[in-house]
Design a protein around this nucleic acid. Structure first.
Lengths: 142, 142
DNA sequence: CATACATATTGAGAAAACCCGATTTAACTT
DNA sequence: AAGTTAAATCGGGTTTTCTCAATATGTATG
């Protein structure tokens, strides 16, 4: 399901050879001397992404690229929980849990509410739940 | 924008104290002796997520939790590119690029097409692009 | 104010991820 | 077959992240 805008050309598809190699390359460009080359073009400059955008995406992905932190987000799906509850969910020492929670907070994934001596955590934005759902869909199809 | 299903109660919102701590906790449960407790309940078991689901999500997030690999995915947004093109995009040594590409491939984010002596990479599923867009939205609001 | 409890922070050892030169594999060219 | 080019893999040193005991902070309660 879901094919790309990539106009697929000749060549083998992930290792399966269909022996019809003949069309002129569009993405690759021809060269002077012998044979052709696929690259060495300056198409590249256009394709180089905005570093700032990449950095901010990277921060989000890093925050979620961890078993324990993902478990936290899952646990918070249907409502907030206090730190000690999350400690039980993760079954890890207090300092470990606190560290993960801080990372999620720093990344803007969760928000806190202080109630007396304890702290409740909740999902900051439903978008992070969508994000996880998408990842699950992507992960469970390979 | 976008509030959760979390019924917010008394307490302070992310550090701003409004000194009205008095209502009975709903998520927390009362205890025998002195004072109340928020946790120590077995609500926890229900909240513990499926380890397999978490693992597969983690794999996807790990694959994208890297500047270079994100740059690759961005570069492939509007069509496939060969490995040497991506080498130019990333401006990194060949072996480094090849390693990143393998990780993306292992994670099912990209697919390859072999054309003679060179290899073209493309996005495997548009869902990964949506994923990145969502991450960008999440990252750019904190 | 001493004590108990919940959470946060720190620091250091262990593990994982990253980087990249060197080598290997594979496919084309002559 | 020898030479060339593209790409993948290997080996290791470097950097980052993870983990968690110890300690600190902050808040209630006797």
């Amino acid at each position: 399901m879901s094919n790309q805008t990539n106009g697929k050309r000749d060549g083998t598809e992930d290792g399966i050879d269909d022996g019809t190699g003949s069309t002129t390359a569009t993405l690759g460009r021809l060269e002077e001397g012998s044979g052709r080359a696929c690259c060495a073009g300056s198409v590249i400059d256009d394709r180089r992404p905005d570093p700032e955008a990449v950095a901010s995406e990277e921060a989000v992905f890093k925050a979620l690229a961890n078993e324990k932190r993902l478990a936290v987000v899952h646990a918070l799906r249907d409502g907030e929980l206090c730190a000690c509850d999350l400690e039980a969910v993760l079954d890890a020492p207090q300092s470990t849990v606190a560290t993960h929670l801080r990372k999620l907070r720093d990344a803007g994934i969760v928000r806190t509410r202080k109630d007396g001596k304890w702290t409740h955590y909740r999902i900051a934005d439903t978008a992070s739940l969508q994000l996880i759902d998408l990842a699950a869909a992507l992960g469970g199809e390979s």
